[in-house]
Design a protein around this nucleic acid. Structure first.
Length: 494
RNA sequence: GGCGCGGUACCCAAGUGGUAAGGGAGAGGUCUGCAAAACCUUUAUGCGUCGGUUCGAUUCCGACCCGCGCCUCCA
């Protein structure tokens, strides 16, 4: 079996094969760094991250580039408003994006920035003009001539044939040839940032940025281009028009688009009061792993309804997986192997792979791992798991986590970071009691906890249950849960 | 209006032309000094509604109802 992915261009699920033997070249439209990223942004980035992880797990070599849009109208406006340079303005949010990516388990792709490619962008426009695919207007802006690219609309399935026939659309205050023509390059405005280039002063349009950077990094034709569903039109359509009309070649072969998420059943928006950044959720006391799990649990082409109830459920699911792993890695098991457990591990790995190969069906992959957890737990209860089996089962868990990345128990330090960040933005008031508690539990060192456990065990052996219960309660209050099992004492942080 | 997606149990959600994965929540039970974890049993004769095709449809077709997205820069 091979990976099958939905391609927006063909509106079908297709077999995915890279152009060049074993190397996948992919480009994803990243964040516009004018503010902190919200969970909608991160749904998209996490979906792309899982795709990227799965491609590597499948044995492909990867050249994965993501842009950081550090230059657009909003950024320029805000920078001008604050009286700082564009670079100064975006530095803070670029840093925040990288921190947030780490927090939510996104592996850093190779990042490229618009501000680092201005001369190439000007050259690109000059080439388009030379071929009469673009034109300059009196104010010094440049526009792409859509009528020169007949396939325009092929990605978004829009029909622009009437325009191509030359029927004039009313052109309002702009002196564009056609109302649909889009800006490649914008003439400078007073008080706003601009760059002096071979085609005159000004700044690049957003669509141009991605075309130039992706081709600079990956070549004129590459394997896959990803982004949120809203980018299909006009952003990606315009990228195709510019790029393909210039090169005469297919720009990207696969178009991977991630569906928007809803929050509590409604489109996320500031006006509805259901707009959340990643940090907002952590301030409320939610673990990064819960957020990631919830965001990974619905396949990327399905609308995901993000709810606080769902977030709680996700937290429990992650706990279940972590408990299982701890059970396998901390107990003593007889040497040897149980063929049934070996088969279970292998079968689970196969099922997860098959699910993900089927257009990244993450829900089904999760179903497979949980079925393994239940069966293996049952066998563990019955004492039928041997040493070699734990390795096999842990290997399956590891395969799962290479994609989902929720098992590593590092929520505490991550939450501490947000806790420490809050005052720097005047947001102490938003720190919830839950976050406070979570951060507190991180204060106890492993050694502290182990000392307490030793005390507790001594008390239990002496059947001094009053003391042991008091110690248990004390640790629980500090966010540490003690479990007495047949295999010994275990603890975990809440 | 144009283009597109979806409606599956209390919640999230997978899936298939042959009789409904998985997770959470609820109820009962086992284990346990307590707690936790874990396991077992249980929770949709039913998959928006109405027709059609078929030996058989939740799965295909049609109509309708409802929700959602995009239609110039919001992931």
């Amino acid at each position: 079996m091979a990976l099958r992915l939905y391609n927006t261009m063909s509106s079908q699920v297709e077999d995915f094969h890279p152009i060049r033997d074993n190397e996948v070249r992919m480009y994803a439209c990243g964040p516009t760094v004018y503010d902190y990223g919200h969970i909608g942004n991160f749904r998209t980035f996490i979906a792309v991250d899982m795709l990227q992880r799965f491609l590597r797990q499948s044995g492909y070599k990867l050249r994965f580039v993501m842009n950081i849009t550090d230059l657009d109208d909003k950024i320029i406006r805000n920078a001008a408003r604050d009286g700082v340079s564009v670079q100064q303005y975006t530095a803070k949010y670029q840093k925040a994006f990288l921190e947030d990516s780490d927090m939510i388990g996104i592996e850093h792709p190779h990042l490229v920035r618009a501000t680092e490619h201005i001369p190439q962008m000007a050259d690109f426009v000059a080439k388009l003009v030379a071929r009469n695919l673009a034109y300059r207007t009196d104010d010094g802006s440049y526009y792409f001539r859509i009528a020169s690219f007949p396939p325009y609309g092929k990605l978004s399935k829009k029909d622009f044939s009437e325009m191509r026939d030359g029927s004039r659309v009313d052109v309002d205050e702009y002196d564009k040839d056609s109302a649909r023509d889009f800006a490649l390059w914008k003439a400078p405005k007073p008080g706003e940032a601009s760059w002096d280039t071979s085609i005159g002063p000004g700044r690049p349009g957003w669509h141009l940025e991605c075309s130039v950077m992706s081709m600079a990094e990956l070549g004129e034709t590459f394997d896959l281009h990803a982004g949120g569903e809203d980018l299909i039109f006009p952003h990606h359509e315009n990228e195709i028009a510019q790029s393909e009309s210039l090169t005469g070649k297919t720009f990207a072969r696969f178009w991977f688009h991630v569906r928007f998420l809803l929050v509590e059943g409604e489109k996320m928006s500031k006006s509805l009061g259901n707009f959340y950044t990643l940090r907002d959720l952590v301030l409320k006391g939610h673990k990064p792993s819960s957020i990631r799990y919830l965001l990974t649990s619905v396949p990327y082409r399905t609308q995901l309804n993000f709810t606080f109830d769902g977030l709680k459920q996700a937290a429990v699911s992650v706990e279940r997986l972590r408990n299982f792993r701890q059970r396998l890695s901390s107990g003593d098991f007889p040497s040897g192997a149980n063929p049934e457990m070996q088969a279970l591990g292998n079968e689970t790995i196969d099922r997860m792979r098959a699910a993900l190969e089927d257009d990244l069906n993450t829900a089904q992959a999760q179903g497979a791992i949980f079925e393994m957890v239940r069966k293996a737990n049952s066998a563990l209860d019955a004492g039928q798991v041997k040493k070699d089996d734990t390795r096999r089962l842990l290997a399956a868990l590891e395969k799962f986590d290479e994609i989902f990345a929720v098992l590593k128990d590092d929520d505490g330090p991550k939450m501490k970071q947000v806790f420490d960040w809050a005052p720097t933005e005047g947001r102490e008031k938003d720190i919830s009691p839950e976050l406070r508690e979570a951060v507190q539990s991180g204060q106890l060192s492993d050694a502290d906890i182990e000392n307490k456990i030793a005390e507790m065990e001594a008390a239990r052996r002496a059947r001094n249950f009053k003391t042991s219960d008091a110690l248990r309660a004390e640790l629980a209050a500090a966010g540490v849960i003690i479990e007495n099992t047949k295999e010994g004492v275990r603890y975990r942080r809440k």
